[in-house]
Design a protein around this nucleic acid. Structure first.
Lengths: 327, 327
DNA sequence: GCGAAAATGAAAGACGTCAATCATTTTTTG
DNA sequence: CAAAAAATGATTGACGTCTTTCATTTTCGC
């Protein structure tokens, strides 16, 4: 009925609790045949160490540090909130989260059991190998991947780009069209990935114009996209890959026949634009889910398990399937 | 640094551990002013009971029962597998899941800490009030809602229908079209909801034909949809609301100019059909996520917390954003 | 102010694991 | 075979909470 304990395992293996413990926790100094017998007993009984009891005993808490780029609005502020919320609901499971701004290059590595950080353009933690920072702390990349991390939790941006392109193709019904891609910067891997994915699916079906770079700035977005639309009235679709979409919405609000528009990230602004019919699709990476999965992963790693690479499938929102809670 | 313990709370409140415990666990027999002082101390220190320790002490395990309709293929078999997988990864957290077929009416209620069941057409557990079965066991509805449950974990079928309709509208680019809805049965609330949602969004834009009922049977689907398409060559879109889609794929495979097709649930068959271009969109309710959220909810309830109503946003799959793992 | 009732305090043994110590047995080595 | 080394067993006190028991103090009604 109840799960077997390590005592049961020891008894079944015909060894003492100490020996079973030495095997389980790899303390060494155990004869090969004893190791095998204990392993066998563990397998036979289906023993599964009680993590709660173990953590209680160790007096251990999961101290995690999350690094998120600063900014008190937009996507990253959502992510921050999601991380804090998620950590709070796990407070009873001894999870303590320390949320910080992305550190400058060469900042000291905090003493903790794991780090979640937005990858991207930063080198904050210096070189990492085997998913560990220089001090041996496991690092999980969130939202944006980075080299050397132990695990990446986030959407596949290539796939996101392909998704956007497929929606654009559907909206053109197989007919011709000209698509304007708008990126924050081509220096960002994420943006390049989305663009590449889109190009793959559009290729041979719709024309993909050279991308406009707006540095995630609304006013720049407004100016440059407005200009592009004026220069080329044949534009039938827009794929906004980065941030600063308020500028896009402003442009769209002033148009009679709008091109089909796909943007990223559900925010109060994009939500309103969707509802008002200024844009057609929002591809959202669900920061709440990313936060939850990131903490799951950090906990798994801290427990010595193999973290399950939870792929986040981006949500696709239209005017008609917006979630009720204001995001 | 470390979380305060109940001892700390007692000390801060100037009472004994016993009294603090009596307040925390509502054992009664405590003077009002002591209750207030303890509550204050809990708030001041931000005390949060260590659930692991509590469970360890109680020798408690979370014994949950899940009722899923029988069948060794298709959606429900996915759901079963997802539930088992999810339970296994939580075995270390004392979660024990007993997976059963949906019981006949009036079956005895198992002794356990919570029940997850697919709602729908069953009355298996008899009357429920306040989310509790007759024996006081909390019940969570999964996939399909039911009256009297404590919480529903699943997608909003109205929204799913609206989503499908929006995709159909996009695919028609504002032009005219005739949409054939295919349901399993109009007796199923879920199917009616999806149809209603679709009707809302299509209204005034595309013609929605009377629904075909195929009882989730592939051969019936094949026959009836084939007939409908032959009778009305002007059909430009199909929304398959229920199961039995293999029949649909067979019909589509024999057509030169296919209507735009939206179906539900990602299965090996629908996946293949999507990749082969036989259909255009799959709306999936992500059984793995539903399983995870259902267990989350049951655990929360068992811990006496208020479960967070985790809305599941259906995933929208095209040919280009299919997940890698075979579903 | 006296007895009864209510409130409080003190203590102890679980729960399953960890981590350490020390004694004892077995195996290896020369 | 004796000594050294390796392996094993036995035991103990945490960790934070639950639960129960029993003794003691405070409060209340009359």
């Amino acid at each position: 009925m109840r799960n077997p304990t390590l005592h049961d395992v020891a008894r079944a293996a015909g060894v003492s609790y100490s020996t079973a413990d030495r095997v389980l926790n790899q303390r060494g100094g155990v004869a090969e045949k004893s190791v095998l017998r204990v392993r066998q007993a563990i397998a036979d009984l289906g023993y599964c160490r009680d993590i709660s009891a173990a953590n209680l005993s160790r007096g251990r808490s999961y101290r995690f540090v999350a690094y998120v780029p600063p900014g008190d609005h937009g996507f990253f502020s959502h992510l921050r909130q999601a991380l804090l919320d998620e950590a709070r609901t796990r407070a009873g499971e001894r999870v303590v989260l320390d949320l910080r701004d992305l550190p400058p290059d060469g900042a000291p590595i905090p003493e903790c059991d794991g780090i979640a950080m937005v990858g991207a353009q930063t080198e904050g933690l210096g070189t990492m190998t085997n998913g560990l920072s220089a001090d041996g702390v496991p690092v999980v990349a969130v939202v944006s991947d980075m080299p050397g991390r132990r695990l990446y939790v986030g959407i596949d941006n290539l796939v996101a780009g392909r998704t956007a392109a497929r929606l654009l193709r559907i909206a053109h019904r197989g007919g011709p069209g000209r698509i304007l891609p708008v990126v924050g910067s081509l220096a960002l891997q994420d943006h390049r990935d989305r663009l590449t994915g889109a190009a793959e699916v559009l290729d041979g079906h719709l024309d993909l114009l050279p991308p406009v770079q707006v540095r995630d700035q609304p006013d720049r977005m407004r100016r440059m996209v407005g200009q592009a639309l004026a220069d080329d009235p044949a534009i039938t679709g827009i794929y906004s890959i980065g941030a600063g979409n308020r500028g896009l919405f402003a442009v769209m609000a002033g148009m009679a026949r709008r091109p089909f528009a796909v943007v990223h990230e559900l925010t109060p602004h994009s939500r309103a634009a969707l509802q008002d019919g200024l844009i057609d699709v929002v591809i959202d990476q669900k920061p709440a889910e990313e936060a939850a999965r990131a903490l799951d992963a950090l906990k798994s790693i801290a427990d010595g398990e193999d973290p399950v690479p939870a792929t986040i499938t981006p949500a696709i929102f239209f005017k008609d399937n917006l979630p009720e809670d204001c995001a």
